[in-house]
Design a protein around this nucleic acid. Sequence first.
DNA 1: ATTATTTCAGACAAATTTATCTTAATATAA
DNA 2: TTATATTAAGATAAATTTGTCTGAAATAAT
Lengths: 156, 156
Amino acid sequence: MRQIENMFSKSCEYGLKAVIYIASQSLEGKRIKIDDIAEKAGSPRAFTAKILGTLTKFNIINSLKGPYGGFDIEIKRMKEIKISEIVFAIDGDSIYNGCALGLTECNAQEPCPMHENFVQIREELKKMLETTTIFELATKFNSGESILVRKDRIAS
Amino acid sequence: MRQIENMFSKSCEYGLKAVIYIASQSLEGKRIKIDDIAEKAGSPRAFTAKILGTLTKFNIINSLKGPYGGFDIEIKRMKEIKISEIVFAIDGDSIYNGCALGLTECNAQEPCPMHENFVQIREELKKMLETTTIFELATKFNSGESILVRKDRIAS
DNA sequence: ATTATTTCAGACAAATTTATCTTAATATAA
DNA sequence: TTATATTAAGATAAATTTGTCTGAAATAAT
Ligand code: SF4
Ligand code: SF4
């Protein structure tokens, strides 16, 4: 059965990791190709490519076809964009109305038994997503403070 | 693409709603049948039955076959059991080691870029799950303070 | 213009989750 | 002990998510 750990869908995980890596390279002035992204983020290439297509449509990243092409993101932009926008582009806005117990919608007037407990955490999650920028994450990655793939996976 | 709203899997949602309903009926001294549970919790009958099988094995609820059979839970037990135990029985213990970005495990020594932001929320979620009892939720439901199915769904 | 390189788009396939169905096992009452 | 009511278990099916593949479109260099 499914794991609660999966706060994000795989699509979202891959999208976030890819954007973090693209941004980290853009910080160093490099445009980066999908093959490199897939490798460095430890994500399936074709699937990641599809997700990057979506993110390009949402103007979260830039893409350029052809030789010397690839993906990048302006430093100004990575400071503006919150990770909530990436989650929104990939998984939609359901975080704003989803119900812990799967009721058709969240409604405080007629709440499910878990409402009070749940809403509190959902608000904190929203706040986190809406205040964390790509720049922040990319900087952390670039400085070596954090990683995108565990060694045991790189090895394979 | 998948929705982040789904904090819990469908299995877990159905399990939680079913247990809340069983408990609410046990509070009134009634043992309750699967058909009634499925209807009152707005969940698919056969699927719910399977989940209740799991919860019975984990001794979260009691089941009795035959006429006058069904499911129930002792009041003492519903005061003891935290919803984390239901989540654990159905979705496993991954909440304790899952990574927001899908790394093979969570490791603060070698964190992913979202670690700090994520861990904070995960801890609050854990705390919520580990302090909320079935009794608390069932009481809230019994008193009419909360619901398990939205009207627009009952209608169908 | 031609060629090489790259993303883009859509069809396809595999894996997982969700859901149903059918039969067996068990308990109760008469 | 028989008939009935119920859960248990396992096979199967549908839906969704995840993943791959192939060819088209765009870009740059020569
Ligand atoms: S907890 Fe209640 S109000 Fe909140 S989403 Fe669930 S049903 Fe809606
Ligand atoms: S946020 Fe970092 S430490 Fe936490 S689970 Fe993800 S990779 Fe592991």
